[in-house]
Structures are given as structure tokens and as C-alpha cells.
Amino acid sequence: MAVKTIGQVLKEKRTELGLGLAEAEKISKVQKLYIVALETDDYKAMPSDFYVRAYLKQYAEKLGLNSDILLQAHESKSGISVEEEEELQDTYQFIKPSERFEEVEEEVPSWKYYLPIISLSATAIAIVAIVAVAVVLNRPAPSINSNGAAYSLSTSQNPTSSSPASKASSSSQPAEQNQVAVSGSGTALTVNLTNASQPVKMTFTASADADIVLSLTNTDQATAQEINASNPTLTATLAAAATSSAITVNAVAGLTMTINGKAVDLSAMTGPGTITVNVAAATTASS
């Protein structure tokens, strides 16, 4: 009977399946650095305990392990007793934790990794310089009148010549409802919804191979929710008096989001993080 940590159980199962870190990342949709953190029991490297539980469940299930037992071991801070010659799922049980860690060698990219980026940057700078020189060389010289003074002909209309009817039409035209603007990148995005119709509804959809855990504030779905192939869609309604909501997600690969039917571009978000939604309600257009 061998005493092993949760990380050792995960790593041995991955090794038994013949998977490298890159292959495990592709199969489980969990980033390589968080796989290393789980396999070395280095939970301080994770953003929060919420992500530890979410990624532990997701990674264990993709390896074919019983995620419920591993989560119970994590909650009780217990190790796992394993009979070496039998199947893991039939033999482990909870005991006192064993403090054993393995060093993980960090892969440092060589200078060749950055060569394509440097080449593309140099090419872009050269193109910009050529365009700037061409604009300067082809700029027309100013016309000279008979007195030697430079002049130009203005074709713009007198602003006072516009009709009262056209002014009234432009001032009374209402602004477009539910305008969505996205800013930020990496692990934090900000979504601004202006001239919003009520109620504000946010819809999240997961692709067939995605397993995504969401936690929302100020909505009718306040607790953590999971969307996957069996439950691919989640709709949350913003509380009537709320003007913002924070959505924490464990992954964005395979996730799509809409607000009041308008698509939200999540492409700038590269991994687990927070999507902050700010809402400005619709106002009556002036006459």
C-alpha cells in the first residue's frame, strides 16, 4: 500500500496514458501551467480555490479518474492510499496528507522562438516607412495666384444653409439600442452595454467539447453554474436595480456570449479570468 498525494495520482495516471503536458492540455482544456500546479500540489500557483476545484474536476475526468474522490481528498486535505498492482479507482482511500513535491523544470524558449515575430515587426516598420515617404513625395504643391500668394478653394457648405427640417430630423433620431463595446485582454475583459433595453439578459453557450464553469454576480444565477455538451446554454437576467455584473470563468475556449441578443467578442481573452459587464439603461431621445 503506497501513500500518495493528489498531484502524484494525477501525474502517474497521465504517464500511464502516455500523455505529455502539451497533449494533456489539449485533451483537458486546462492550461499547461495549471496542470503542472495540480500535479505538484502547488495550489498557491492557482488564481483561487474556486479554480483549484474546477480544474481538478475537469482534469481528473479527462484522465478517467473519479473526480468526486479527488475533490473530497482536497477538501479534507488528505492523501490517497493506493495498492500498486490494482486499478486506482478501486483502491484509493483517504489518509493523512503526505508532503512530497517534485521539481518541475520550466521550459525556456530559445531565441529562435522570437525570430518570426522580429521578422514580421521589421517588415511592418519598413512598409509604414515606405508609405510615409510616398505620401510626402506625392503631396501636391499649393496653387499661386497672380500676386504670388498661395490659395486653396474650399468646397465645404455654409453650416447656416442647412434647412430647419434637416436639423429637426437629425436631432430627433434615437440612438441605437443595446450598443456593445469590449475592452481589455488576457484574463480581464470589460463589456460596456449602452442604451440598454430592459431586462438585460446574458446568454452563455458552450461548444460540444467544452466544459465551462461560471460564477455570476447581481443576476438570477448567482451561484456557480456549469455548461457542457449535456447542458450547453445558460441564460442569466441582471437584477432590476443592478448596473454591473462580474462573471468569473474557468476557460473561454468554446464559449460564446450575447447580451440582449448582441454578440460579445471574447477573442482578446486568453484564459481563465473575469468578464465585467457595465450597463447604462436606455434614455428617451430629445425632440
Rank of each mutant, 00 (worst) to 15 (best):
A224G: 07
M202L: 13
L189W: 01
M257S: 04
T223H: 13
I127E: 06
D220R: 01
P232F: 03
A134W: 02
A165K: 12
L120I: 08
V136S: 14
I247A: 00
A251R: 11
S185F: 03
S185Q: 12
N218P: 06
A150M: 12
A150I: 09
G148P: 00
G184A: 04
Q221D: 00
S121R: 00
T256A: 13
T205E: 14
N231P: 02
A206K: 02
A188I: 06
T203K: 11
T155V: 11
S207T: 08
Q225R: 09
A149G: 12
S119K: 14
V136P: 00
A240T: 13
F204V: 04
T233C: 05
V213T: 14
S171A: 15
I130W: 00
L193Q: 01
T155R: 10
A181H: 08
A149R: 13
A196F: 06
A132D: 03
A132C: 06
T190M: 05
A150R: 10
Q225M: 06
L214Y: 03
A246E: 07
V213L: 12
S166I: 14
M202Y: 05
S244G: 03
A132F: 03
A236G: 02
T205I: 10
N178H: 02
A165G: 12
P174H: 03
S166K: 12
S185K: 07
N147M: 13
N158V: 09
N178M: 01
Q179Y: 09
W111E: 15
R139N: 15
R139H: 12
S244K: 04
T258Y: 05
